[in-house]
């Protein structure tokens, strides 16, 4: 098909405009390249193309998310049922990861859904500590109606006082459709603050979130033994099975991610191959230390031992 240069130029401009509306990094790269050619790059516009992102430090996931979860927009987490807290755990682990990297100590806001709060309870402060969050920097709200919850989320983003706001929604309510999610997404973008939408027991639904992850529980890792192997039958760090349901990347992605609350980092879950099961029939269970080869240790000094000051 023959295209005049004019038409091609126009098509290119339109494509670029769409890409810019969607905020994809491709457009930014294009623009940067164009600016570099023209030498017109203004100092004030330098950071415009780059959106702040939260990197998981897991290359597989970061690549699929174009470098990490955007910190100036709406991202959606979905859990298939109300029976587990995997999605809750993943959302709070993300908050802990953010809190770890943040310089200022802003609190985290949890906007709960009333029915979910009745079914599953509220986040438990000691459990928050276990997952790496500071309970003193955690506020939760239980609004009566969904409209109030949306208003809360919106004003929380606008205030800019929170590190991350987590909006919990149960199922697919009719009052929370594309319009409302678009509104929240635009607000988050304007304020440059992250908003996590936690859809408990919900179906996939069109929303204006840039990414949607399905979070399911997966068997936890085992606890480490001092020699680096794992103790079979023990429950260690939580593992989440993530499925990337919506992204710019067309390739489907599903992976198991382990959250290490002590180091506050995500890891790809290791396979069960290096788990050492404790032998239930061993005569002397436990680590076998080598016998001393040379001679017994010298006997300890008797009587009171005082730490005298050094004479000189």
């Amino acid at each position: 098909m023959a295209q005049t240069p004019m038409a091609r130029e126009r098509l290119f401009a339109l494509r670029e405009q769409i890409a810019r509306l969607e905020g994809s990094p491709v457009a930014a790269a294009h623009r940067d390249a164009a600016d570099a050619e023209g030498g017109l790059k203004g100092a004030g516009l330098e950071g415009e193309g780059e959106r702040p992102r939260l990197s998981f430090q897991v290359p597989l996931l970061d690549e699929a998310l174009d470098g990490g979860l955007p910190l100036d927009g709406l991202s959606e987490l979905r859990s298939p049922s109300l029976r587990d807290a995997a999605a809750t755990g993943f959302a709070l682990a993300l908050a802990a990861l953010l809190q770890n990297g943040a310089a200022d100590r802003s609190p985290v806001l949890w906007i709960s859904d009333r029915v979910t709060a009745m079914e599953q309870g509220l986040p438990y402060a000691l459990g928050l500590k276990d997952i790496g969050l500071e309970p003193a920097l955690f506020l939760h709200a239980v609004p009566r109606r969904l409209e109030d919850a949306l208003w809360l989320a919106e004003s929380a983003i606008e205030s800019g006082a929170f590190l991350v706001s987590i909006l919990e929604v149960r199922g697919n309510p009719a009052h929370f459709g594309l319009t409302e999610s678009r509104r929240l997404s635009l607000r988050a973008k304007a304020a440059g603050r992250p908003l996590l939408l936690l859809r408990q027991a919900g179906e996939e639904e069109a929303s204006s979130a840039a990414y949607r992850l399905l979070v399911e529980p997966a068997p936890a890792t085992s606890r480490f033994l001092p020699d680096g192997s794992m103790l079979g039958g023990s429950i260690g760090n939580p593992v989440f099975r993530l499925t990337l349901e919506k992204s710019r990347n067309p390739a489907p992605l599903s992976l198991a991610l382990e959250w290490n609350p002590h180091d506050r980092q995500f890891l790809l879950a290791r396979g069960p191959d290096d788990i050492r099961l404790a032998d239930p029939f061993a005569t002397h269970p436990g680590a076998r230390l080598p016998a001393s080869s040379h001679r017994p240790d010298c006997p300890p000094a008797m009587g009171p031992v005082l730490a005298f000051d050094r004479a000189s």
Binding site: A85, T88, A117, L122
Partner: peptide
């Protein structure tokens, strides 16, 4: 002083 054993993330009412 807090208990140092693992506690759940969500506690039922």
């Amino acid at each position: 002083f807090l208990s140092r054993s693992a506690r759940p993330l969500r506690l039922f009412a």
